[in-house]
């Protein structure tokens, strides 16, 4: 079979691509130019790309679950997580029981200017307090603003997608994102630093639900 010269074939490839980009429609509407559909690029500020659910965009903090155990901070390869916490006395779980000590988070900052997006902190967290979300629009003109505090990290919780189902043959169990409505969240944002006491009390009420797990957090900061 005689072969076309490569020079002509190359021209054919570029011409074909141009035609496909300019006239992507089929059938009757072939001749209507629609490069917006034909091109593969996403015109970023005008249209947004949807990353997959597992995409490591930004880390969200579910503060109720955090016990300030420092595991994430210690496992971070570039040590960009800053945690401070204190212990508060909590009422006993059952009437007549012993009073408990519970760790409260005062400060939970992630410096996204340092973060390498490796995801180790999310993996090591034993209490389901950290989650990845695919959000990616949080660039800042000032580098210091990339330090997200616990309030900001908590806001990302709304964007955490549900965990995906697994492919056939997998033995992994699909985890669940903790139920978390915005109404639970609103009072926590309003609390100032000096409201730690009432803050603690409020959060203890919600902590009752998964108290068993929290008891395991004896090795606080």
């Amino acid at each position: 079979m005689p072969q076309l010269p490569g020079l002509l074939k190359g021209l054919g490839v570029t011409a074909r691509t141009a035609a496909r980009t300019l006239f992507p429609k089929r059938g009757m509407r072939t001749l209507i130019p629609a490069p917006q559909q034909g091109s593969v690029t996403v015109q970023y500020p005008h249209e947004k790309e949807a990353p997959p659910d597992r995409a490591r965009g930004v880390i969200a903090l579910h503060e109720e679950n955090c016990t300030a155990c420092m595991l994430c901070s210690r496992s971070c390869p570039d040590w960009c997580i800053y945690i401070e916490g204190h212990k508060v006395k909590a009422p006993p779980r059952r009437a007549g029981g012993k009073a408990r000590t519970v760790n409260m988070v005062d400060r939970f900052d992630i410096d996204y200017a340092l973060c390498m997006y490796c995801g180790i902190c999310v993996d090591v967290c034993p209490f389901d307090a950290l989650f990845w979300t695919p959000e990616y629009e949080y660039s800042e003109p000032n580098i210091a603003d990339l330090l997200h505090d616990r309030i900001r990290l908590g806001e990302w919780m709304e964007t955490v997608p549900e965990f995906q189902a697994y492919e056939q043959g997998s033995e992994q169990k699909v985890r669940a994102v903790p139920d978390f409505g915005p109404e639970d969240f609103a009072p926590a944002r309003k609390l100032g630093a000096d409201d730690a006491e009432s803050d603690g009390a409020r959060r203890l009420a919600s902590a009752e639900s998964d108290g068993a797990r929290r008891l395991a957090s004896g090795d606080g900061s």
Binding site: P52, Q164, A165, Y166, E167, S170, Q172
Partner: peptide, 8 residues
Amino acid sequence: KDDLPRGW
């Protein structure tokens, strides 16, 4: 770290 997502 994790298994394949469904449909992959």
